[in-house]
Design a protein around this nucleic acid. Structure first.
Length: 297
DNA sequence: AAAAGCCCCTGGACGC
DNA sequence: TGCGTCCAGGGGCTTT
């Protein structure tokens, strides 16, 4: 799933098709994703224009012209595909007289947005861990799904001092700390592994070890902040990672997975020049961690 | 209050 | 070819 770089890539892909355009029609093909879709979902969207599309952590927030917010999360396997409607590209009729639907309809296409400019935006999600909710404008920061979110890692709030202050006194290991969306919003299993590798820090070390006894940042906290920013920016620059069913809004793949140093590379050589170590896998709080035991301390 | 498990769901990879 | 097992980018909820 989509972590911050993938969600940001999706957001950028959706903007031309959705922002500034009205939602003409919504096809809702099942009553629920992870949660039930909102009451009268299509009716509350149709006729509204999407004024902007924001990302907050791993969430997407579409600001609608009536003030409402369409809150969307991709879960593990959610993706959007943009295509042109039959009308916009001209209906194709086969010799038998049947309408040929230009876009193949996947079995897990759950919601289809038909936009006023002729684009269709299809939400596909095999595991249905994703969700869509409608949120009142004043709930932008207080809705239960958003209230607890921590800082944006690409904003100015991510500093060594901030991280150290949050880590001070924590009993968890550093990996669980970074995965906690209440601390930093948007990091997931891949980019936490990659950031820890870049910062030369063991995922199993205590979170509090990036701070002094009084909660001040150490050099480790500085290295971690730099590593987090760099890995996220590199991944966004590469269009995110495409693992399994994850795709861009245009159906193309993201290429960052070719640059994973540790994620999913157990048994392979550490890519660092002259290291010669082997990437190992371990399980922390039920999830795979990949790291280089020679580079990371 | 914080931390650790369990669970939601589908599908792909792998072993037999 | 078929079946069983394990694993997967997340996160809410329940239990300790």
């Amino acid at each position: 799933m989509p972590e911050l770089p993938e969600v940001e890539t999706v957001r950028r892909g959706l903007v031309p098709a959705m922002v500034g355009h009205a939602i003409k029609h919504v096809e809702q093909r099942r009553p629920d994703l992870r949660f039930p879709l909102p009451e009268n979902f299509a009716g509350r969207l149709e006729g509204r224009t999407i004024e902007s599309l924001e990302r907050r952590g791993k969430y997407l927030l579409a600001h609608l012209s009536d003030g409402a917010l369409l809150l969307m999360h991709l879960g593990m396997t959610g993706s959007f595909l943009i295509s042109q409607s039959e009308k916009a590209r001209g209906k194709k009729i086969s010799r038998s007289g049947k309408l040929v639907v230009p876009t193949s309809r996947g079995t897990h296409d759950h919601v289809v947005f038909h936009m006023s400019d002729g684009a269709t935006v299809t939400y596909n999600d095999p595991r249905r861990f994703g969700f869509m909710l409608l949120v009142e404008p004043e709930e932008r920061d207080t809705h239960p799904m958003l209230r607890q979110l921590g800082i944006e890692p690409l904003g100015e709030e991510l500093t060594a001092a901030h991280l150290a202050a949050k880590a001070h006194g924590k009993r968890t290991d550093l990996k669980a700390f970074l995965l906690d969306q209440r601390i930093i919003a948007g990091l997931g299993n891949i980019y936490v592994c990659e950031a820890l590798y870049r910062a030369h820090l063991l995922p199993t070390r205590g979170a509090a070890s990036i701070a002094t006894a009084t909660g001040k940042p150490t050099a480790k906290a500085e290295a971690l902040v730099t590593a987090i920013r760099d890995v996220l920016n590199d991944a966004i620059g590469a269009g995110g990672s495409s693992l399994r069913d994850y795709r861009h809004t245009d159906g193309k793949l993201g290429y960052f997975q070719h640059r994973f140093a540790v994620y999913n590379r157990a048994g392979k050589k550490c890519p660092r020049e002259g290291c010669g170590g082997t990437i190992e896998r371990l399980v922390q709080s039920g999830r795979s961690t990949f790291y280089c035991p020679r580079c990371q301390r």
